[in-house]
Simulated assay, not measured.
Amino acid sequence: MEMSLGWLFLSAFGSATLLPGGSELLLGAMASRGEWSPVSLLLWATLGNTLGSMTSWWLGWLATFKKKPEDFKGRGEQKALGWLKQHGHWCLLLAWTPILGDGLCLLAGWLRLSFWRSLILIGLGKLIRYGLVLLLAIQFF
């Protein structure tokens, strides 16, 4: 399969959902090939991953019609819910973290946190993460 910015976008999008993904590895591989500008790699990866997380936010928003966040008893969900209640939108800067990040985005939608604030903070966290991955890939490969 040939690498492209479209594949990077799809990989990043999928990685932001509950689907497993390796967008960081793909980003690093694409950066090491030098066929694309670092800015375009950073923007496509960040856009895909942010939209994937906002899909989780939207699903959480829709889920409030069926079930309240407090009804979930899982340790991960309760931890994410506690952080969101205590720190509000600022927790969404951690939306890039494995497993916890998916729950944060989903619960942010459930709690009906502001769409725009959520989008900005999720996007900023993802931009920083992918920026660091890109810098490391360029530096070492």
Rank of each mutant, 00 (worst) to 15 (best):
H89Y: 10
T17R: 05
A63N: 10
F13G: 03
K67S: 09
K79A: 14
L107V: 13
L51N: 02
F65L: 12
S118D: 04
M30F: 04
G74Y: 05
T64R: 15
C91T: 00
V39N: 01
L10M: 14
G125V: 11
S53P: 09
L121C: 07
L10Y: 09
G14C: 10
S40K: 09
E24G: 09
A95H: 06
G131E: 02
G52D: 11
L124H: 00
A137L: 12
L10A: 13
L136R: 01
S32H: 02
R117P: 13
S114M: 01
E2N: 13
P20Q: 11
I138S: 05
T46P: 06
N49K: 04
W90P: 07
V39G: 00
G76M: 15
W36R: 02
L107F: 11
G52F: 01
W83C: 05
I138C: 14
S40D: 08
L94Q: 06
L19E: 00
P69N: 09
L104F: 07
T97I: 15
S53E: 06
K73G: 14
G125K: 02
T97D: 03
A31I: 00
L136Q: 08
I138E: 04
P38A: 13
W110Y: 13
L104V: 09
G88M: 03
I120M: 07
G48K: 01
F140Y: 11
W57A: 06
A95L: 05
E35G: 04
H89E: 10
F141K: 03
K79N: 07
G125N: 03
L26H: 08
P69E: 08
G6P: 11
L19G: 01
W96S: 10
L104M: 14
V133M: 07
S11I: 13
F65I: 04
G28S: 14
A108E: 02
W90C: 10
K66E: 11
G123H: 01
R129K: 15
P98G: 07
E77C: 12
L124N: 03
W90T: 14
G60W: 06
T50L: 03
S15Y: 02
A29C: 06
F141Y: 12
I128Y: 10
L51V: 11
A108D: 02
E2M: 12
A29E: 09
L47F: 10
F115T: 13
T97R: 05
L106T: 08
L106C: 12
L107C: 09
A12E: 08
Q86I: 08
L41N: 02
M3E: 05
I138D: 00
L111I: 15
L8Y: 04
L59G: 03
L47I: 15
A29F: 02
L94Y: 03
K85I: 04
G88K: 03
E24K: 01
G14V: 01
L132S: 06
A108C: 02
P69Q: 09
L19N: 01
